[in-house]
Write a protein that binds this DNA or RNA. Structure first.
Ligand SMILES: [Mn+2]
Ligand SMILES: [Mn+2]
Ligand SMILES: [Zn+2]
Ligand SMILES: [Zn+2]
Lengths: 137, 137
DNA sequence: TCCTAGTTTAGAATAATTATAAACTAGAAA
DNA sequence: TTTCTAGTTTATAATTATTCTAAACTAGGA
């Protein structure tokens, strides 16, 4: 839950002018209890449904890219030619249900590794992501 | 390492006529020691470099799709709008190096989980994939 | 050798994303 | 408050990845 003031601060703090469009998109993304997994297309539909608001698709793309650069959202791994984003910027894992094509968050501490390989020399581990694919029982 | 005969059998067994083009692509994909991670674009470059061979891009796409359906290759998760494929069809994990944008295989048994969450009701786990992102030390 | 279903191909079509450049606006300064 | 301008939005064009189309080709059984 984020008030308009908080949203404006969030934008200001990342050098993004709090325009009408960015505030509206930020509300849609961040003013919710659950993590939101979305694509440019789904976000555009959410925003521009019923002709209530009107934000151009170019602005949707620009804003998503700006929010990503600012670290307010992160891009997630998928297997189709469409970029997916996640409002949960903490390290965490996912269930993936191929039937609904939906991701569900798994808290980082819900997965504990007993053994992982050493990184190649000269490299260290930045992040570790687990995707658990599901199927009907 | 796969002989031409083996490759032809592999194609026949999945109801794919062993055409000149498919044999050539299969050799490029499967006649190598290490796993090959590729996109339609990189495969096309490998095949059609120096005008030695000439296989149309449409055939590259058709063949990759056919090999995927037959289970000879698998598609892997990425974060950009380009399909990546893997000649290693066993369940396994990856290191991802954002600098070189290259994946490296990790054997399934190199990763052992101490704790994973229960799947949502009505669902069971089909697969579990780990991607370990790297950075410079 | 003939026949035909399956395959390849160039090119068109589509889908996702990014670039362009003109109009608009937030907000600092006058 | 008004002015000014860099930053932003927008329609639209361009680009990139992929899929479709339909004509030409070919593997391989009859
Ligand atoms: Mn795909
Ligand atoms: Mn991307
Ligand atoms: Zn998530
Ligand atoms: Zn692999």
């Amino acid at each position: 839950m984020q008030q308009k003031k908080e949203i404006i601060n969030k934008l200001r703090s990342s050098n993004l002018r709090p325009t009408k469009q960015r505030i509206l998109i930020a509300k849609k993304l961040f003013d919710r209890k659950e993590t939101f997994h979305f694509t440019a297309e789904t976000l555009n539909k959410e925003i521009n449904r019923k002709g209530q608001n009107k934000i151009s698709l170019a602005t949707i793309y620009n804003t998503v890219e700006a929010f990503k650069r600012a670290g307010h959202i992160r891009e997630i791994l998928t297997n189709n030619c469409k970029s997916y984003y996640d409002t949960n910027i903490k390290s965490h894992h996912h269930f993936y249900d191929p039937d609904s094509k939906k991701l569900t968050d798994i808290d980082y501490q819900e997965v504990i590794m007993k053994k992982i390989p050493n990184p190649p020399k000269g490299k260290k581990i930045k992040d570790l992501e687990v995707v658990i694919s599901l199927q009907k029982k």
